Simulated assay, not measured.
Amino acid sequence: MIAVPDRFAAETIARQGEDARPWLDRLPEVLRGLCGYWGVEPDGQATHGGLALVVPVRSGEERYAIKVTWLDEDTRHEATALQRWAGNGAVRLLGEDPVHGAMLLERLDETRSLAGEGHDDACEIVGNLARRLWVPPPPSVPRLIDEALLWAADAHHEWDRVGQPVPHRLVGRAVRAHIELTSGGYRPSLLHRDLDFTNVLAGRREPWLAIDPKPISGDPHYELLPLLRGRFAELGNAAGLRRRIALLADASGLDLARSREWALARAVDEWISAVGRGPAGQERAAVVRTVAEWLAES
């Protein structure tokens, strides 16, 4: 029997409420059935992120991983993106059970991510990797333009609802960016949307591969904010942030000014959202607030 880690269960219930408890209760039996379906057996302890449980499995000498995800609007298109990439820059999808939100994946080294590599090397690696991921998008993934215009229409209301934590001038600038930057000047691409240093793991087939996409179709310049709030303590100050975004834009072939404006717009979005989550969002709010303020200086 595959045990569900207590922390994963507690975090899932805290986030999703009691509706998640039946799903958690069924997970061991679901995983047992998936192992039988794919002809594999458990090969170690389950690990987890915020939304998914990952179980190392094997068939003979071949090693894989089964990932079972709590499905929501951010996660339900993950398999579609992995199918589109077909292992080019991302973990390879080997099988899918959409009913249970499950995937059979090649196994990567979860103990080694770009979070542990030298700063400049990590920026160059992830920038080059991102270029490979920005391919023509499948028609079924959500569109950034739709989400951006919806956010712009509701931003001031949401800002007011959570107590106006962001300077009004930054809210206005973010609203304009969401409207203007989606109006043209880019080729829609398949975006990872959560590409940060921890979501690039060491592999055997390739040195580094992306995991855990929350895919969307849109402007590649939208992609960089997670890489600015990741390894945040290493930035030090606004100059450190400007240096990092310049490294990332150069490695990924992006226009620096457009990348900065999208990063600021996303940071304001996340700042308002994090404040709205109360104590659970305090740490994220502090980081994206600083990122937004530093970007506004440049």
Rank of each mutant, 00 (worst) to 15 (best):
L71P: 03
W159P: 01
A122Y: 14
V200F: 00
A81V: 06
G240S: 13
D269T: 08
D121F: 06
Q282K: 07
V91Y: 02
I2P: 15
D25A: 15
E297N: 02
T198F: 01
L224W: 02
A86W: 00
L191F: 11
R107T: 06
E117V: 08
L225T: 01
H168N: 06
Q282I: 14
T12V: 05
P139H: 05
R132A: 09
G39S: 09
L225I: 05
E293H: 08
G236S: 12
P142A: 12
L150C: 01
L225E: 07
R132H: 13
E78S: 04
V141Y: 00
P226V: 08
L170N: 05
A238Y: 01
N128L: 15
S298G: 09
A249H: 06
L105D: 08
L235R: 08
D109A: 14
C123T: 04
E234Y: 07
V135A: 11
A257S: 14
G116S: 11
G281P: 15
L150T: 00
W262F: 04
D97A: 12
W134N: 01
I145V: 09
A155R: 00
A148I: 05
R204F: 04
T290M: 06
T290H: 07
V126F: 13
A263D: 09
A20E: 03
D196N: 14
R169H: 12
G240A: 09
G127W: 00
L247F: 03
A153S: 11
A130L: 10
C123L: 13
P220V: 03
V291P: 02
R84H: 03
L209I: 03
A115G: 14
L224N: 07
A115D: 11
T198M: 01
R176L: 00
K214I: 03
M103L: 14
A20T: 11
I216G: 03
L190F: 06
E18L: 07
V30D: 10
R143E: 14
A14G: 10
H157Y: 04
E96Y: 05
G230F: 07
N237T: 05
N128D: 14
H221C: 15
H156D: 11
A79N: 06
L201C: 07
